[in-house]
Design a protein around this nucleic acid. Structure first.
Lengths: 173, 173
DNA sequence: CAACTTATTGAAAATGAATTTCAATTTCTT
DNA sequence: AAGAAATTGAAATTCATTTTCAATAAGTTG
């Protein structure tokens, strides 16, 4: 049985669970299973809200703010509160399934996180707020070198390049 | 006449100005002169508070938060308000003499800024909050390369490496 | 299946840094 | 020295985030 977003309704009992999703093998269902395992392992509960929020989050490819995810989720479940989205994002981050980014625009953004080897960084257009991801292993390894030189044990890193994207460069005199 | 911080008092008229500081040639006096020029060029006024705040800021080597600078300044001029420090830091940033950094701890920090060629990045210890600066031209040029590949016009960039400093590594089991 | 314990939810309130407002004061010009 | 305009500092406001709490829901146990 393939998991579908449209199945998520306010009737929590009808929602997919790890059990009835096991036949499917999409990335989405894998991520949801990971989340469920995280919750189960801590005695936390799997609710319809959490399922919907997590599924919506995993479906979004970009970086979302709490506000954006909240609006997206609310379209499907109007009763849901901002705070629940906020709390679920924190849970996802604790579970290692989301990572928080703080760009200069003053509010937190989250992106899917996971695999150590998929680290990427960001080009951020200060005119149109577009965020472009890039990967550069050479920069990564230089960072590790620098850290080693200082006896530093790296947990995470963050590289943001601010400027004008190719599109905005042209439209500005 | 050498400029001294201790000369700054609440009597603005007695404070050093570009004119009577011109004989001295310290970096501090150069920076203050730049700030004064910036103010003059915009019809803004040179006040005792601004002089004191700027001078104190230029004297601090580290990254300061508005709060920290406020406390530092208040020790010399108790009547000064937080808002004035906040506003002066913004002015200094506009003048290109300070640059704002937003690390993950939730409040803005400022550091002396200026010379394009002195760009540096930060190793940030998540245990003791120590901030270590480093310079790595190879990382810089790789960043520029990446930006070029995306047709991006770089205005600024920001590299933070979070982890444990050599000291904290040892003290944690 | 029903009762129970405990987690979760959502609204509202609280927090905290950043920012604005405004009357009093100070600066700088004339 | 007087006037126009900028600045100051206290208080109020904003805005994202975080906490509180009573009502509700989840999952467990008998």
């Amino acid at each position: 049985m393939i998991f579908k977003l449209s199945m998520l309704s306010s009737h929590a009992r009808e929602c997919s669970t790890a059990a009835n999703r096991s036949a499917g093998n999409t990335i989405l269902s894998q991520l949801l299973t990971q989340f469920e395992n995280y919750l189960a392992g801590r005695g936390l509960r799997l609710t319809g809200q959490r399922q919907l929020i997590a599924a919506t989050f995993f479906t979004i490819t970009d970086h979302v703010s709490t506000e954006e995810l909240y609006r997206s989720v609310q379209a499907k479940m109007p009763s849901i509160g901002y705070v629940t989205v906020y709390r679920t994002l924190k849970l996802l981050a604790e579970a290692g399934l989301a990572s928080e980014k703080n760009f200069k625009d003053g509010f937190a953004r989250f992106e899917k996180a996971g695999r150590k080897n998929d680290h990427h960084d960001h080009l951020i257009c200060t005119a149109c707020n577009r965020i472009i991801e890039f990967r550069n292993p050479r920069i990564e390894s230089l960072q590790d070198e620098v850290a080693q030189e200082h006896g530093f044990l790296v947990a995470d890193h963050n590289l943001e390049i601010y400027g004008l994207c190719s599109h905005c460069r042209k439209s500005i005199n």
